[in-house]
Nucleic acid binder design. Structure first.
Lengths: 189, 189
DNA sequence: TAGATTGTTAATCGATTAACAATC
DNA sequence: TAGATTGTTAATCGATTAACAATC
């Protein structure tokens, strides 16, 4: 039982989204690793390798059945279930995330929201009331929550992240700003 | 002139933020690679290796001068200048980012905001008016903008990203939700 | 000086890519 | 069958880690 590389997991999500997007078009029933890779910016070999960690989903000489692959990836990623998450940080960004449609599409919803700022505790955001960060562990364990969304200042991200893992959180979605790719930055001399 | 690994760049930002946080405390004048790494979740070797791509900033047997290292990292990352960025995507998330204090702290501000949704074009967000995605290239080139923030639906991220690079953007900050780390996901069999 | 810590090299680890047998 | 494409292996590439000489 070898663990799956983190980049693979992230790409699986990207593949899933693309398949979701094209599954509506009935004329596209089958997609090759080359086409899928091309569409999301990965090589065909990478697509096949990524999928191979979880089983065999394709048909040699043919490709992958779009609807089936979408379903299987959804199962692997847990997007077919409804998952509860918590939100930590209820600033501008955090409050926007409570209403973020991307999460809804993935079957994710917020079961609790937290802040360390006393002036925010007790406020309402949508249907939820902001609780103190100190209550995170209790809520996570009682409700068996596995996923957390972080929207705290970057300087607090590491510390909050550690406490989330300590509370039993298995996946953290981080919205502290980190650049996707800083192109062309070369070694100075 | 070898290029610097992407993970190194991302950690440099994390180091910078930590140094910024502790630079206010006058009693902390010097920090070792071990202490800095410990504080942000990296090994001492990683810290030293990361810094070594850009020069020699420390003092053997002593460590790194906090204020100096912060200044040097700020120069490398360009945080000492004011940078103009554009925002693509003016949904809940995008609008929240316009007022996001994290950007201000890094010397970043928005010089233009864009959306592909006709019903949003012409709307005001703060002091800015939403323009069409079709105008991105023109604005980027005229104002020599290097940085873009993406807050579009995940399904559009790849496509928008490509057009940004095509327009001349050098760094993209992506706010489409991708998990930082999906812990403990093991190979299925 | 003795202890501490850097900067750098070489070894290790892990992810990506290329190539190809299997097979639809 | 011939062409296409998978799943997998082995080779390559790149990042991390360990170790240590240099030196404050």
């Amino acid at each position: 039982m070898k663990s799956v590389p983190q980049p693979t997991i992230e790409r699986l999500i990207v593949y899933y989204r693309y398949l979701e997007k094209i599954a509506h078009f009935d004329e596209i029933e089958v997609i090759s690793s080359h086409q899928l890779g091309q569409s999301v910016g990965a090589s065909a070999a990478k697509v096949r390798k990524d999928l191979s960690y979880f089983g065999e989903f394709g048909c040699k000489g043919v490709g992958y059945d779009v609807k089936n692959l979408k379903k299987r990836l959804g199962e692997i990623l847990g997007f077919n279930n409804i998952w509860s998450m918590i939100l930590v940080g209820t600033g501008n960004l955090g409050r926007a995330l409570v209403n973020y449609q991307e999460f809804v599409r993935m079957g994710l919803h917020f079961a609790g929201i937290f802040d360390c700022d006393l002036s925010k505790i007790g406020n309402r955001v949508g249907e939820l009331v902001v609780k103190s960060n100190h209550e995170i562990k209790e809520v996570v364990q009682k409700r068996e929550i596995k996923i957390a969304v972080m929207a705290v200042p970057a300087s607090e991200a590491h510390q909050v992240g550690k406490s989330l893992v300590d509370a039993g959180i298995k996946a953290i979605w981080n919205f502290a700003p980190v650049p996707l790719k800083w192109y062309n930055l070369k070694k100075y001399n």
